[in-house]
Amino acid sequence: MTTDSGASPHRPSLGITALGAYAPARVVSNADFEARLDTNAEWIESRTGIRERRFAAEDEYTSDVGVGAVRDLLSRDPEALREVDAVICATVSPDALMPSTAALIAMQVGLTGAAAFDLSTACSGFVYGLSVAQGLILAGTARRVLVVGAEALSKIVDQDDRNTAILFGDGAGAAVVGPVPAGYGFQQFVLGADGAGGSSLYLRCAAPRLPGGFEMGETVGMNGREVFKFAVRVLGDSGNEVLAKTGLKSSDVDWVVPHQANIRIIEAANERFGVPMSRTVVNVDRYGNTSSATVPLALREALDDGRIQDGQQLLLVAFGGGLSWAAGTMRWWAGAPSLSARAAAPAEVPA
């Protein structure tokens, strides 16, 4: 599925007008797994690129980390939520199936009464959310939309399963989508999913099995080999597709902001769409795979350290459970208070 976000005389330019991020205070290093898992710190880093990740506190859940990201956004721009009348939370680890985590976040940040719903496409959720947000605005349903990618994956991952425990961390990013000056903002999105690959990456809810009879366990399950092959292919293909739809070549891209699943996946995918690692934002080494939060966390970090500048061309690419994928192109606008560089890490404790 391709969505056209290009501005026209009758269609406003839309993009990110505010951005915040949050990472829990607890740092879990690779060495912390050595005592109970058949692994060591060097093996984890060599296979994944991950050195450490953040885990939420015992009484901290997805809505809490999501609120932390919104409060970080507000600390940078106190007026950022003005005119926001819809909230989307992309998450695979919601506090509850109902009420939605989006509604819980909205309640705590002063947006009671706004439309609010969760979006479940796992790691591709934030990019999906940006596309859905621009659709709501173009349809006249919303003026501005708050998109939150938030996860407390440590609550749903079996910490004794070496295949998954070493990969995932907790965190959140929050972005406001709204009008930006002409020539800036979203250009194209490519979204897709293939349920036939669902048995390669899953989390059980109401049903004990998937269509076709695949039996699911109680916690996150993953076939690492199949996910790796899928990820490399779909990141490369969706990245190339969205560039072609936008009329761009890989040489036109200033920065790729990919889903931070595994450094080997990122490197292999970059080869497929021809953008060097020197123009790729990577922070998987310090946060691990935070699913729907990885893209906004990486984007916020690259703004804070000054890498991403006004007018630069960005390519966002992600894949996740579903199996799903999402890619988007945008020309960055840095004209709002929260979109400039600031020498600060993501806030670590919600106010």
Rank of each mutant, 00 (worst) to 15 (best):
G212L: 12
A293D: 01
F273G: 13
I16T: 05
A115G: 07
I266T: 15
G221I: 10
C123E: 02
G198L: 09
S131N: 14
V109E: 04
A165Y: 04
N289E: 10
F230R: 13
L119W: 01
D158H: 05
V232Y: 09
G113F: 02
V87Y: 04
S120W: 04
G239M: 10
T48D: 08
V227C: 11
S238K: 13
A165R: 03
D32T: 01
D59E: 15
G135L: 00
A193C: 11
V242H: 07
G247A: 12
R272Y: 03
G68Q: 00
I166L: 07
G110V: 01
A25S: 06
L97C: 07
C205S: 11
L299I: 07
Y128R: 05
E301L: 11
D59I: 04
G173I: 00
S5P: 02
A152K: 02
V242A: 09
V145P: 01
F33H: 12
F55C: 02
V176R: 02
A193F: 08
S93N: 03
I166E: 04
R209E: 15
L73A: 08
T121K: 06
E301Y: 11
Q309V: 11
D160T: 11
S46A: 14
P346Y: 01
D310F: 10
T294Y: 10
L191N: 04
N289P: 10
V256N: 06
W43K: 13
K229L: 14
P350R: 01
V92P: 04
V67E: 03
A318C: 09
Q260F: 11
A207D: 12
R225I: 13
G20S: 03
A96M: 12
A302P: 12
A56K: 00
A327C: 08
G183S: 02
E45D: 09
D194W: 06
S29R: 13
P258C: 11
S324N: 07
A318K: 08
Y128I: 04
A31Y: 06
L339V: 05
M277S: 14
D285H: 14
S8G: 02
V177C: 03
A318Y: 07
A327Q: 04
P350N: 02
S75Q: 13
W325I: 09
F33A: 04
R342Q: 12
V157R: 05
W255K: 07
Y22A: 02
N283V: 12
I266D: 13
S29V: 06
N289R: 09
G306M: 12
A86M: 10
S63G: 02
A152T: 15
T329Y: 04
C89R: 01
A207S: 12
D170K: 00
R144M: 00
K249L: 15
